[in-house]
Every structure is written in structure tokens, then in C-alpha cells.
């Protein structure tokens, strides 16, 4: 079987995003930020709208808006007694409302909501590949630099800050990088798929892993496997590519809950 060019491009971009999503998704799960993806997806409507207003690349405006939301979350977390989930709810719905107001004002634009939600991985360009791999490589490199303080802060913020790890700074950097990931992947795989790819492989990996590094590696493997087999499935059965990828990830998650788990993880614990 000869693969069409667009399919190879989709594979390369998808694998790239799955690799980035692995480590960042693990921190989403560890830091209980699953709702953060949802918040960013709601705020991305505002980002997309602003992209149209100022006629600039929507990745840039989505990144700007998402980063602002991330910084607001960070500041509110410091200044109020509210927990992250309530704050995320607050930011999520208010940014969605502002986005809808802006969109209502721009009545001359037709929004492709399905595109925003699911993207179009089969329409990726060579530039998209370049952006995903270069930005992704940079993001992972920065994550590698802040790794120890971010992990220490995730385990216990008090220990981390009293032992010179500046956990708050790395947390802020991490959240801005996460906004960056959403921004580069929104056009390609859509907001639903990126949040799914952040959470589902990490959740699956948690079931069978014994250390942070192991969980990250397993979630990368799961993510890449889901992308590759999801894309092939969509080619074979003519299904929508994005949802196919997530369904494969879900199937892997379900398998990890079964007794098979003992075979994979061996004699751990």
C-alpha cells in the first residue's frame, strides 16, 4: 500500500504532538489540572476571534490569551483561598463569555466550530510539521530544565520552596508552556484532541507505572501508538481521524485496567 503524502505528514505531526503531550500530560494529571485544558479551550475562542480582528495567525493570539489565562490562574491561586478547580471554572466561563461577545460583534465572520474542536490533521502543511517539532523540542527542553523543581513542587511545595527550588516560578513556566502546546496544536488536531491526548495516555500510564519517569515514557508510547493506529484506522474504516485517535487511547486505557496490567508492569510494587 502506498501512503499518500498528506497521510505521512499527518503521521509525523501526530507523533510529534503525542511525544510532547506525554510529559506535559503527566504533570496535568499530577497537578490535577485536567480542567485546565477545558478552560484553555473555552478561552481559545477568544484567541481565535482576536486573531480575526487583528488579522494575525490564530496560534499567536490563542497562545497570548491562553498565557494570560494561565497567569491569571497562577495569581488567583496565590491571592485567594479558592482551589484550582473553582478558579478554573471561573476563568473558563468568563473567558468563554468574553469570547462569545467578541464573536457576536464580528458578525461578518463564519466560525468553523468543528475545526476548532477537532482540527484537521489530514490537512497539515510542512510548516505545521516544522512548528510542532521545533516548538515541541523547545518546550520539552525547557521542561527538562525546570524538571526537578517542578516535580519537587508537585510533591510538596513547602519542602521545595524551603530547599531553594523556586516551585512557583517553574509552575508558571509550565503553565505557559502548556498554553503554547494548546496554541500550536489547536489548528492541527483541535482543542478536544489535544486535551484528550494530554490526559488519557497519562491516565493509562498511571495504572501501570511505578516512577515519574516510567509514567512519562509509557504515556509517550501510549500517545504515539494511539496516533499511529488511530490514523491507520481512520484510513481503513474511513472514520474521522481525531476521534479515532482518542478512541484508541481510551481502549488502551481500558486494557490497562484489566489483569493484563500485571503482565506489562511485571513485579512492580
Amino acid at each position: 500500500m502506498i501512503l499518500d503524502d498528506f497521510f505521512i505528514r499527518a503521521l509525523i505531526v501526530g507523533i510529534g504532538i503525542a511525544i510532547i503531550a506525554g510529559p506535559f500530560g503527566c504533570f496535568v494529571v499530577w497537578k490535577r489540572l485536567s480542567y485546565f485544558g477545558e478552560t484553555l479551550s473555552h478561552s481559545s475562542l477568544l484567541g481565535v476571534a482576536l486573531g480575526y480582528v487583528f488579522s494575525i495567525n490564530i496560534s499567536i493570539t490563542v497562545f497570548a490569551v491562553s498565557s494570560i489565562v494561565a497567569i491569571l490562574l497562577f495569581l488567583l491561586n496565590e491571592r485567594t483561598e479558592l482551589t484550582s478547580d473553582s478558579l478554573l471554572g471561573l476563568l473558563s466561563h468568563s473567558s468563554l463569555s468574553i469570547g462569545l461577545l467578541v464573536v457576536g460583534y464580528l458578525s461578518y465572520i463564519r466560525f468553523d466550530m468543528m475545526g476548532l474542536l477537532f482540527g484537521d490533521i489530514l490537512a497539515v502543511t510542512k510548516l505545521d510539521i516544522l512548528i510542532v517539532w521545533v516548538c515541541g523540542g523547545l518546550f520539552i527542553f525547557i521542561l527538562y530544565i525546570i524538571w526537578q523543581s517542578l516535580l519537587a513542587g508537585t510533591v510538596n511545595r513547602d519542602i521545595a520552596s524551603s530547599e531553594n527550588m523556586s516551585p512557583r516560578r517553574s509552575e508558571l513556566i509550565y503553565m505557559i508552556l502548556l498554553s503554547g502546546i494548546i496554541a500550536i496544536s489547536i489548528k492541527i488536531i483541535g482543542i478536544l484532541l489535544i486535551t484528550g491526548l494530554l490526559i488519557i495516555p497519562a491516565a493509562m500510564a498511571r495504572n501501570i507505572s511505578n516512577s515519574p519517569i516510567q509514567m512519562i515514557l509509557i504515556s509517550i508510547i501510549v500517545g504515539v501508538t494511539s496516533v499511529v493506529s488511530g490514523l491507520f484506522a481512520s484510513l481503513t474504516f474511513n472514520t474521522a481521524s481525531g476521534p479515532s485517535i482518542l478512541v484508541i487511547a481510551l481502549i488502551l486505557f481500558i486494557i490497562s485496567l484489566t489483569p493484563l496490567k500485571r503482565l506489562i508492569s511485571g513485579a512492580n510494587n
Binding site: 490535577r32 510533591v155 516510567q214
Partner: peptide
């Protein structure tokens, strides 16, 4: 008090 979140596997 050290409450570790068990979503993080830590040896």
C-alpha cells in the same frame, strides 16, 4: 503533614 497526591507514582 505531607499529603502526597497518589496520581504521582513515587518510589
Amino acid at each position: 503533614n505531607l499529603a502526597i497526591d497518589w496520581t504521582l507514582p513515587l518510589r
